[in-house]
Design a protein around this nucleic acid. Structure first.
Lengths: 150, 150
DNA sequence: TCCGGCACCTCAAGCGCTTGAGGTCAAACC
DNA sequence: GGTTTGACCTCAAGCGCTTGAGGTGCCGGA
């Protein structure tokens, strides 16, 4: 029958956390505030079991969250989802906007990564007592930092 | 004289926020919990003024924070800073570790960006009633989602 | 059989900001 | 010369998790 619980594809909270990048407490928290709807439980143990549909939903939320979406934004998304194809244009716009935000974030992070690597190089030069490499490293870091200004 | 406050290079809290990516409240908060040491104030208005040395420190903290470093981690970093060249090896390791973490984070985010773009395409196909493009978009998204599994 | 050890559970408190309320001061405009 | 605008201030409360305390049930040895 439909809605049966015999498929072993359901995820434990640990697996769900690994896939989504949310921590286990966060998953419990999201459930508590109503973002995940009803999450099934294993009959005997009472442990959570994430079915494929719920897992997809959690993964979508994780991507939106990465793009900086707040909990209330996620609720709005879930409302759109419930409206199905009649909200297709809104869905498209929502994903497009979040994608742009995330792309911009990633650019900023790449700069910061360059900074961290530059600083690692700088201290490495100091450890090695290589004053030439140190000068070059300082130049590099300075060049990166100037890009923060914009 | 040394330590004079006449250079106009000092940043307002707004400018500091823009450069560092921290919000203004976060900058006030960090100051309050002792991460920034003493931040100078404009004599007449009482407004904060971030001098170049403080600004550098804030930018370093911002990069470390991007890599997921906690407040207590940042305190440890500031301790190392205070120890100067005698802690060079630790500094190198700290920056190297954070750089690797950030690099891994960025990789995960790129995947999520691909997901968001894929979903935007999918809903766009639905808006346009293009069932062929919709099928392709579903395939794309599915392919991306499979990569979450690892 | 009993003994970890581990994955999960709940509930409460804490942390790291964020938001809001309420106020000061300085330049800018009627 | 008032008044509006905008950047800043402080203090308190709220939000979104995170951490910790304390407990249950299962599973693989000794």
């Amino acid at each position: 029958m439909a809605g049966s619980t015999d498929r072993a594809a359901d995820l434990t909270i640990q697996e769900m956390a690994r896939r989504s990048g949310f921590t286990e407490p966060t998953l419990r928290y999201y459930e508590k505030i109503g973002l995940l709807g009803r999450v099934a439980r294993d009959e005997s143990s009472g442990h959570r079991r994430y079915d494929p549909a719920t897992a997809d939903r959690v993964e979508a939320l994780a991507c939106l969250r990465s793009a900086g979406m707040t909990v209330s934004g996620m609720r709005r998304y879930l409302d759109l989802l419930a409206r199905g194809d009649s909200a297709a244009a809104e869905q498209r716009d929502l994903f497009a906007v979040q994608a742009e935000k995330l792309a911009a974030d990633i650019e900023r992070l790449r700069l910061r990564l360059a900074y961290l690597r530059g600083k690692a190089d700088l201290w490495d030069a100091r450890v090695r007592g290589d004053t030439d490499a140190e000068k070059r490293a300082i130049d590099d870091v300075t060049r990166v930092m100037n890009q923060f200004t914009d």
